[in-house]
Design a protein around this nucleic acid. Structure first.
Lengths: 135, 135
DNA sequence: TATTGACTTCGAGTGCGCTCGAACCCCTAG
DNA sequence: CTAGGGGTTCGAGCGCACTCGAAGTCAATA
């Protein structure tokens, strides 16, 4: 598979794939006789996993640490697991925050729904202090 | 309340507060006789809500649209509600993705836990195609 | 043989959301 | 009266994760 095909299949752009290889997120790809990258389908599994890490907010720095351990192969399993477990905690935390904020959003929206015809003004522009005497 | 105090209470830096005012996320603050910003505690409510929007991934551009409607005051409730409802959909979507990825993470971690002494190698470095003849 | 189009490397540019430093001002306490 | 510790404006710089363009190579097709 050449880079264009992999781009289509992975959803990454060819530019991004080269960038990922450059920084070490993707292993250096074999080249064919004309120096073009030639991929095995198995790379898609790795790219998809990277996508999961990205979706869950892992910075590239951290992915690189994981990728490096992975490239070193056997004997790094415990470290990889720890890295992933730490990350999982971040994700759980973020998830909880998101859920809490979603509730706030729901409340706010419900407030607007109530305002629709009643104009209860739950959200006035009343930040500028104007106690008698100021200004 | 001066900017330093507000910074402490809101968790934003004074630099960030000024930046937010500059771009229009925070209303232009009244100044005292020596041209220093003087805040009413009610601004904290708004900052906290901005934090929710930020936590849930709303870009500043969008927050600005909301802030502008809010500043216009009455008559913009329906628009504000719509904006928030659209955002809520984004959040729900993101939440779902996060949950799915969390499951993947769990599975992966469980795989490593199993590998701990057994070395099942669920994650080999086998991307470089090497069918007999290549290279 | 000529053209087409996907590939190559390299380095510069982009958008986002801050973050910081410089140079200056003003009030209060010692 | 002086020193300190706030504050002010302004514009430049930063870290992240791409994204793009230029200039060139290569192989398959008309």
């Amino acid at each position: 598979m050449k880079i264009g095909e992999l781009a289509k299949r992975s959803g990454l752009s060819a530019h991004t794939i080269r960038y990922y290889e450059r920084i070490g997120l993707l292993p250096y790809a074999d080249r064919d006789r004309s120096r073009q990258r030639d991929y095995d389908a198995s790379i898609l599994v790795w790219i998809e996993f990277l996508g999961r890490l990205k979706t869950t907010g892992m910075p590239i720095r951290e992915m690189l640490r994981y990728a490096a351990l992975r490239a070193r192969g056997k004997g790094t399993e415990a470290e990889r697991r720890e890295l992933l477990e730490r990350h999982r905690e971040h994700v759980r935390h973020h998830l909880a925050e998101l859920q809490a904020s979603l509730l706030v959003l729901d409340t706010k929206i419900a407030g607007y729904a109530g305002t629709e015809q009643r104009m209860m003004d739950n959200d006035a522009t009343a930040h500028q202090r104007k106690p008698p005497g100021t200004r």
